[in-house]
Design a protein around this nucleic acid. Structure first.
Length: 569
RNA sequence: CGGGGCGUAGCGCAGCUUGGUAGCGCGCAGCGUUCGGGACGCUGAGGUCGAGAGUUCAAGUCUCUCCGCCCCGACCA
């Protein structure tokens, strides 16, 4: 490919909108360009990368026996309504109608439709297990697209779906996908770790996310310093030391005057006690508008994802003033004693005396003890934080890092087949629901994450397996007849021997060409110049290397082909 | 959705406070010189100043409304 004809120009300065290093490079190196918020066009260089990433994913899916197919982007409303997701997904999906008024959704995922197909194509237990997958555009009207290709409103997802006869079969398929994912990310140069994740509104038990740890990530991951425990903060728990504290012999609770102290911080200051000496009580409303109180240690924050799960609701909101009145609570002085609502008590609240609001203005109680002074359902509804004890090994400390979710796998079991009555004939002749799982990888996000984690201050440093080209041939200067002839002959020979070449045939200065080569980040730079040809040599330089290698002009093709062949594919 | 910031040439920005000929750098086109780390000279093209309404003799600049883009948070397989 002649660079003078390349559709896509490099930029010396990045557009102001680009904030993360990777986003700036996507724009500067002509990988992709925005059309609107969260809607990007792949330029030719980026498209080649996308196709290579896609190829790796495809090979690893095929390796575990998954079969590629393709379902439409536009999907009819009925199956969505059947599973309840037509309404649930309303805020974040694109919809349209045809000329007869029939409703469609730009697909968010394809569980509903792959189940419809499975019912038709897979009628007997003899045909299972099955895994099918496709690469297809997904539409999500994200409130906040960000960081270039990291969070888009339209993107290509590889989504795979497994169908098994029972839970044991599902777990096998799940394990196969888990291994395929580990290989897939490793092959594309992503250092992804598998973490436990929340299963969200879809229920189900087993779910993992593949996270790449980087500062640009949107998720927060708790990681044990000692064992292999890793979990998304939405799901992470902690080990709580118990037993030592005793509530026996605690004097009866007594009121203390606390005028004007309406926050834990204010109480800490005026009473000289640490945050965990207090109980924090928060009022929420769930989706069905029921008010619920959550009692936490004063130094902990509520974790909304866990709270939603505990309440089995899709949404929680902070309660209104009217809710406070109804609950018999006073803002700023709320406590668990005497509340006229359902009360949840976080598992971090121990068997010891606390200071808590008295539900009376300017008054708190001291020596409030769970089980004696108030009761509540025990739940885990608080955030973990740095330094908490690992729930698995109980000795390691948790650290929290940011991560990008490049893929996830999810065993949802019969969630969809139950709602859709999707069944097969089992060995005993009865009809049984499919046990399913879904497995997704976001293509654009994977590319963006590769760039975020593979660059230096000069530009992208592509892992060879996904680089847009293998070699970047630079002719210098372009107006030298001998240089041009030899460079073009070299390019032609390389291409015949299967090396993918970007040929910088532009009449630009050496500085511009080298700077662009560093920016675009093709793994091997090949310089054919007047200076080198005087020595009858060609210069080879790996993007990752500081030093270059001079090879005789006559053996350049073989040497380059040898280097390229040594790279992982 | 809450909070904040920004919209002036393809990109980066100044001009707005105090209304009066729309500018700079990069890039782009032509010619010439140069040719191993973002060269130089000359010439040139390129603007509904995000949109609409208003105030004014006069609006990039002041007022109002709307739109777009970015960041933090919330939300989101």
């Amino acid at each position: 490919m002649r660079q003078s004809k390349l559709f896509g120009r490099t930029l010396r300065e990045a557009p102001a909108e680009a904030q993360t290093p990777g986003h700036r490079l996507v724009l500067r190196a002509a990988i992709a360009k925005p059309l609107a918020a969260g809607l990007y066009t792949w330029l030719p260089l980026g498209f080649r990368v996308a196709k290579k990433v896609e190829r790796i994913i495809r090979q690893e899916q095929n390796r575990i026996g998954a079969q590629e197919m393709e379902m439409p982007v536009l999907t009819p409303a009925e199956p969505w309504k059947q599973t309840g997701r037509w309404d649930a997904l309303e805020p974040i999906t694109f919809r349209t109608k045809d000329h007869n008024g029939r409703e469609f959704m730009v697909s968010y995922t394809h569980e509903e439709f792959v189940h419809l197909h499975a019912m038709q194509e897979t009628q007997s237990y003899k045909q299972m297990p099955q895994i099918v997958y496709h690469f297809q555009s997904k539409g999500r009207d994200e409130a906040r697209p960000r960081a270039g290709l990291l969070r888009l409103r339209e993107f290509v997802m590889k989504d795979a779906y497994s169908f098994d006869v029972d839970q044991a079969g599902l777990e096998k398929s799940y394990a196969a996908e888990h291994e395929a994912y580990a290989r897939t990310f490793e092959r594309m140069g992503l250092d992804a770790i598998s973490v436990e994740s929340d299963t969200g509104a879809m229920g189900g038990d087993i779910a993992h996310e593949f996270q790449v740890l980087t500062e640009v990530g949107e998720d927060r991951i708790a990681i044990c310093s000692n064992c292999d425990y890793r979990a998304n903060l939405e799901k992470a728990t902690r080990y709580i030391e118990g037993g030592s504290a005793r509530a026996d012999g605690v004097p009866a609770r007594s009121a203390i005057a606390t005028p004007g102290t309406e926050s834990i911080e204010a109480l800490e200051a005026s009473l000289g006690q640490p945050g965990d000496a207090f109980l924090k009580t928060l009022l929420f409303r769930d989706q069905s508008r029921k008010v619920v109180a959550v009692v936490l240690p004063g130094d902990r924050d509520v974790n909304e994802a866990k709270l939603r799960k505990a309440l089995a609701t899709g949404e929680v909101k902070f309660a209104s003033d009217a809710d406070f009145v109804e609950a018999g609570a006073v803002p700023g002085y709320i406590g668990p004693i005497g509340l006229k609502t359902r009360v949840l008590v976080d598992h971090g609240v121990g068997a010891r005396p606390y200071i808590a609001g008295a539900n009376k203005k300017d008054v708190h109680f001291r020596d409030v003890v769970l089980g004696r002074d108030f009761e509540g359902e025990r739940v885990d509804a608080s955030d973990v934080r740095e330094g908490d004890l690992c729930p698995k090994c109980k000795v390691g400390r948790l650290t929290i890092k940011r991560g990008v979710e490049v893929g996830n796998i999810f065993a949802y079991g019969t969630y969809y087949s139950d709602k859709m009555n999707a069944t097969f004939v089992a060995e005993d002749g009865t009809r049984r629901p499919f046990f399913g799982g879904s497995y997704g990888i976001g293509l654009e996000r994977a590319v963006q994450t590769i760039i975020e984690t593979h660059h230096d201050d000069k530009g992208i440093v592509w892992p060879p397996q996904v680089a847009p080209y293998h070699a970047h041939v630079i002719a210098l200067p372009m107006n030298d007849e001998d240089v041009r002839t030899k460079a073009e002959a070299l390019v032609a020979k390389l291409e015949t021997s299967g090396v993918e070449v970007l040929y910088d045939d532009r009449d630009e200065s050496a500085g511009v060409k080298f700077a662009d080569a560093d920016l675009i980040g093709i793994p091997l730079r090949v310089t054919v110049s007047k200076r080198n040809l005087k020595e009858n040599a060609v210069e080879l330089k790996l993007r990752t290397a500081a030093e270059s290698e001079m090879v005789p002009h006559g053996s350049a093709v073989d040497r380059i082909a040898e280097i390229v062949a040594s790279w992982p594919r």
